[in-house]
Design a protein around this nucleic acid. Structure first.
Lengths: 191, 191
DNA sequence: ATCCAAAGTTACACTTGTGTCACTATAAAT
DNA sequence: ATTTATAGTGACACAAGTGTAACTTTGGAT
């Protein structure tokens, strides 16, 4: 009943992610995206009213994927297994954290719809944290995690660790295992 | 022998920092800066050929200040004192790490002078790391730090920790002390 | 007082991105 | 084959940022 589309939403969102990570919010624009999709710029306006709506749509899509993966944490058995799962997840899907910082760069939208979505979006990281509190609670209940350290600091540090630069090109396994060891047992000897 | 300047370099760099942190590399522009300095846009071109030169100049200035502070680490006595000093420094001057990510967003300059400075600039974080290796070496020599964890991972994690978000508005002291404890002794109980 | 060098202003030509709209193209239903 | 809904195009008017250069302002030196 209609013409065939030249690109899928997945393709589009994949490119959006790439560009946002490379150029940041202000460096992202329709012309570049259209070019890479091999489509005219005007076509994009068939699907998104403007840049802010495109980006919020993308972020919601991306976060939902991530949260869906994260949900698997509950099938991992005991606390140690959940810890390993979580660390693997955030190292495999590390862009999410960086993308969250992009949202903060979004200007105050004039558009009413975009404004609502942006508010919705800004709550997502906090929702994710809340989601993870089950994991932390389990750890504390099982006596595996220190009681006196606030949950939010633990989660914050875990998530932040994905952004640790690997300048010297250490093998990924060494790098990830080192970070896991520091987070769990610290970098001080015989503590 | 000349007219009085309407703004100092310090004022200018202070605003540049603020804007880069708020808007990122691509969101920074001369018009905004000129407005806040209460000066015409054209006047800025008296001091900087273009945006890239301004930003690289700023970054060199900023990094030099930071490195000057960092140099004090050698006067702090034993390893524990140096650790405390370093953590305090990066929590007080945390923007530096975020600014480094801005450099990565800088386009490949057409200008030859700017290109040279950018190369110089991209080496600075690595130089800083090298600077800090004395600290790590001391820790390992004194038997205070685990031998088997690579220096770069330890330093990376320490620096990255400043970006841990304090969403829930914990008192700064609680927040910083918690992070210090995790980094030094881990978040696992009775490890 | 007048000169002149550095500071600042303003207008101009250029470039890049935005959002819209009338238009054409195409696949499927009738 | 004709219709029709949706996909895509291209040109337009607009907005915002860039870099330049001729011009004015100002304050100390002569």
């Amino acid at each position: 009943m209609a013409r065939e589309r030249k690109f899928s939403n997945e393709e589009l969102f994949h490119l959006v992610k790439k560009m946002l990570l490379e150029h940041g919010y202000e460096g992202f624009h329709f012309g570049l995206l259209a070019e890479q999709l091999d489509v005219s710029r005007g076509a994009l306006y068939k699907y998104f009213e403007n840049k802010d709506e495109l980006i919020t749509d993308f972020m919601l899509y991306e976060m939902q994927l991530f949260i869906a993966d994260l949900a698997q944490i509950e099938n991992q058995g005991d606390f140690e297994a959940q810890f390993d799962f979580l660390m693997k997840l955030i190292f495999d899907r590390g862009e999410v954290h960086q993308l969250i910082t992009v949202v903060k760069q979004m200007g105050t939208s004039s558009n009413e719809k975009a404004k609502q979505r942006k508010e919705q979006l800004e709550k997502l990281p906090l929702e994710m944290y809340r989601y993870l509190q089950n994991f932390i609670s389990l750890g504390k209940r099982e006596g595996k995690l220190k009681e006196h350290i606030p949950d939010s600091v633990m989660l914050g540090l875990i998530f932040q660790s994905i952004a640790v630069p690997n300048h010297y090109g250490l093998p990924k396994s060494v790098w990830v295992e080192s970070i896991k060891e520091i987070i769990s047992k610290g970098m001080f000897a015989h503590s």
